[in-house]
Design a binder for these strands. Sequence first.
RNA 1: GCGCCCGUAGCUCAGUGGUAGAGCACUCGGCUUUUAACCGAUUGGUCGUGCGUUCGAAUCGCACCGGGCGCACCA
Length: 498
Amino acid sequence: MTEPKEGSGADRWRDNNLRRLNELKARGINPFPYKFERTHTSKQLQEKYKDLEANVETEDVVSVCGRILNERNSWMFVDLYDEDGKIQLFFHKESVPAEQLEILKSLVAKGDHIGVTGTIRRTKAGELSVRVKSFEILSVALLPLPLSWDGFTDVEARYRNRHVDLIINPEVKEKLQKRSIAIRALRNFLDERGFFEVETPVLQVEAGGADARPFVTHHNALDIDLFMRIATELHLKRLIIGGFEKVYEIGRIFRNEGISTRHNPEFTMMELYQAYGDYHQLMDFTEEMVRHVANAVCGTTKITYQGVEIDFGKAWRRVSMYEVIREVTGIEVEKIKDFDEAKKIAGELGIKLEYEATIGEVANTIFENKCESTLMQPTFLMDHPVEISPLTKVHRAKPGVVERFEVFIYGREHCNGYSELTDPLDQRGRLEDQARKREAGNEEAQPLDLDFIEAMEYGMPPTMGIGIGIDRLVMLLTDSASIRDIIAFPTMKPHARQ
RNA sequence: GCGCCCGUAGCUCAGUGGUAGAGCACUCGGCUUUUAACCGAUUGGUCGUGCGUUCGAAUCGCACCGGGCGCACCA
């Protein structure tokens, strides 16, 4: 938000509120006191008195507090909002001391926090209310809230002033609360199964574990550039090598790439690794885990996302990438002999390949362009080309592919899991291939992390591992079209202050 | 990075070449005292920024800033 301008409406508004503030101080009232003892939240009262009939008055004394967002009938009725909802306050001149009523009407405004004590009643109109006997100001607001009938809808203003957005638009808080519930459910699920939650470095000398461009930062004392992590994978595997058998990390990942409704430069990923398991076991585990989270957030495993019913409850389809390509395009990747033929086939589909690629890379491009968007229901897309999977064990039976899966829902990738590559010699060769691609100009190819390779040479047990994009999962569970709707403070370009 | 669209009062929006407007909010007043989302009055704007075109620009042109959506990249 821009600073209030000289003489502007906001400025005058603030002046009025400053006068209000000073008058309170002059009367010996602290406009910013230290605490308030409440007996109930609005939600607790609504629940406790849900059967109280209209026009019935009780002797029950309660104390509630919150922010005033609306007032009717010259402050006879006030809507008080707390974290869980709202409760109506009833200020009647026969109940509230005259001096307090005068303060309410002249020195309290919408946006202020107050605490009240009074008795419970339900009005003739059916609204549960507190008949106020006394109140105190808990905080005075200097700036106006956008309390218009038409709401507060300007997307930019909402993201830049999320605190205001939260006050005005209840669904914002609901979604962020659901995000918290989802992460808690995930933790509970893993903790109950004997996983340790661990923390690995955000600042790294080499940013590996994924194909993405990192953010660069600088350490002054060491005088070296460091990269912000793009994945937690390599360090978590080093913990497996070190003897942890079940670990996970829920952490912020940073990728220096485009911003869109599905991408924020910093986002949250959960990665878990379990020794002695393979990707088949991991798929069973993943289904169960996502169902657990969906139940915790939505109370069901059948949800609606952007008008499409998504059913986590049924067994998720498990299908290989090449099978999906065959279904959608009729192309049999296994029968492609060389790159020239692959290039020709891609060209017929309208896909241009700008660099010399392998057959596997072409197949992946075909999948991304033609097949990805068709996978609406939860699907394990399995057995990717080895060239695009440098950290994954080769398939035990099929040549040229690896034991990997990605979970697609609503045509979007949500998880990436595999039978982890544990052969250090194979791993060295794969990362050397990646390093060559980097030298050839592919900035997303993975770096050669020699510390990681050396760690593997101490011996790594068979391991299954998966990364889940928490933001995208929460988008699904809250039916959010944009990733910004489930991130409290999404990345924004700074707006020049005037 | 590319394309399309958007930026006018605190909020939501009209105004498309000729005196900057409305509703809500705010301030003041009235009426009412178990619903007022009422009535009246006042107040509030470098029309995102800059440079042009023009007798005259919120309006037309160019550039820039910020945003939305789509594409690309990617998760």
